[in-house]
Measured scan of single mutants.
Amino acid sequence: TEYKLVVVGAGGVGKSALTIQLIQNHFVDEYDPTIEDSYRKQVVIDGETCLLDILDTAGQEEYSAMRDQYMRTGEGFLCVFAINNTKSFEDIHQYREQIKRVKDSDDVPMVLVGNKCDLAARTVESRQAQDLARSYGIPYIETSAKTRQGVEDAFYTLVREIRQH
């Protein structure tokens, strides 16, 4: 089974770092803004072998026109913010609204991801993020692309959301 996953969120929150940590098991430290990259990885989730087709997208506003296209083809979405960047957390709402509009559905598989949880300088409390996820009816997972904490959990949870859909 193949799953088309799309990673969305503001610029600099760590979308590529999360994806590369999942696929290649290493942490990319330097920031190089993405336009669009796709990665494929075969994994076993709950005993089922599946192929993850992951689209890593641009957070930069100037590429926002490309969003409709990949939102149409994606089956599930990782909505990523950084726990030390309140603005990126506030941006999640717009991504969710755009996904709902493009998919013409209120019920699209999504996982809210709070990345950079290895950093002490948190400005978005776990509780705020949990409340937001609960209001959307989606899971919330904290990750660190640096330490790998929660990385597999985030992507695998999204696959489970798609399966249950």
Rank of each mutant, 00 (worst) to 15 (best):
E2N: 07
E2T: 03
E2G: 06
Y3E: 01
Y3S: 05
K4S: 05
K4E: 01
L5T: 02
L5K: 00
V6K: 03
V7Y: 03
G9F: 01
A10D: 03
A10Q: 01
G11T: 15
G12S: 14
V13C: 12
V13Q: 14
G14A: 00
G14T: 00
K15F: 00
K15P: 00
S16H: 00
S16T: 13
A17T: 00
L18G: 03
L18W: 01
L18H: 05
T19G: 13
I20H: 09
I20V: 01
Q21R: 01
Q21L: 12
Q21K: 13
L22G: 15
L22R: 15
L22P: 06
L22E: 15
Q24W: 04
Q24P: 01
Q24F: 00
Q24H: 08
Q24E: 02
N25E: 05
N25W: 09
F27W: 05
F27G: 02
F27T: 06
V28W: 01
D29L: 07
D29C: 03
E30W: 03
E30K: 12
E30H: 05
D32R: 01
D32S: 12
P33F: 07
P33T: 08
T34R: 00
T34W: 00
T34I: 04
I35H: 09
I35E: 06
E36L: 02
E36G: 00
E36H: 04
E36P: 01
Y39S: 00
R40K: 04
R40C: 02
K41G: 11
K41L: 10
Q42D: 02
Q42E: 00
V43R: 11
V43G: 06
V44W: 03
I45P: 09
D46Y: 04
D46E: 07
D46Q: 02
D46N: 06
D46S: 05
G47C: 02
G47W: 00
G47A: 04
E48D: 01
T49G: 05
T49S: 07
T49M: 02
C50H: 09
C50E: 06
C50I: 04
C50S: 03
L52E: 02
D53T: 04
D53F: 02
D53N: 05
D53V: 04
D53A: 05
D56A: 00
D56R: 03
T57N: 09
T57S: 06
T57I: 13
A58R: 15
E61V: 12
E62K: 15
E62S: 05
S64W: 09
S64T: 07
A65Q: 02
A65P: 09
A65M: 02
M66C: 09
R67W: 11
D68F: 03
D68N: 02
Q69T: 06
Y70G: 05
Y70K: 07
G74W: 01
E75N: 07
E75P: 02
E75R: 04
E75C: 09
E75F: 11
G76M: 11
G76K: 03
G76E: 00
F77H: 08
F77K: 01
F77M: 03
L78F: 03
L78Y: 08
C79W: 03
F81R: 02
A82Q: 12
A82Y: 01
A82E: 11
I83R: 07
T86A: 10
K87C: 03
K87M: 02
S88D: 07
F89V: 05
F89W: 05
E90T: 04
E90W: 02
E90G: 05
D91V: 09
D91M: 12
H93R: 10
H93C: 12
Q94H: 05
Y95R: 01
E97D: 12
E97W: 00
I99Q: 01
K100R: 05
R101T: 06
V102M: 07
V102Q: 00
V102F: 04
V102Y: 08
V102E: 03
D104Y: 03
S105V: 02
S105G: 02
D106I: 03
D106Q: 05
D106C: 09
D106Y: 02
V108I: 03
V108T: 03
P109M: 12
P109F: 05
L112F: 12
L112G: 08
L112N: 12
V113F: 06
G114D: 02
G114V: 11
N115G: 14
K116V: 15
K116L: 15
K116G: 15
C117G: 10
C117Y: 14
C117R: 08
D118L: 09
L119Y: 11
A120D: 13
A120V: 09
R122N: 12
R122S: 13
T123F: 05
T123M: 08
V124C: 11
V124E: 13
V124K: 11
E125S: 12
S126I: 08
Q128S: 12
Q128K: 08
A129S: 10
Q130Y: 10
Q130P: 09
Q130C: 04
D131G: 13
D131P: 09
D131F: 00
D131A: 12
D131E: 13
D131T: 12
L132N: 13
L132D: 12
S135L: 14
S135H: 12
S135F: 14
P139C: 14
Y140F: 12
T143C: 14
T143Q: 05
T143S: 11
S144L: 14
A145P: 15
K146L: 13
K146P: 15
T147R: 10
T147Y: 13
R148Y: 14
R148H: 15
R148D: 08
Q149P: 14
Q149K: 13
G150H: 07
G150W: 13
V151Q: 15
V151E: 14
E152Q: 13
E152W: 13
A154F: 09
A154Y: 04
F155K: 06
F155R: 06
Y156H: 13
T157C: 07
T157K: 08
T157V: 13
L158N: 07
V159P: 06
V159S: 10
V159Y: 13
V159H: 10
R160T: 12
E161K: 12
E161H: 13
E161S: 11
I162F: 09
R163N: 08
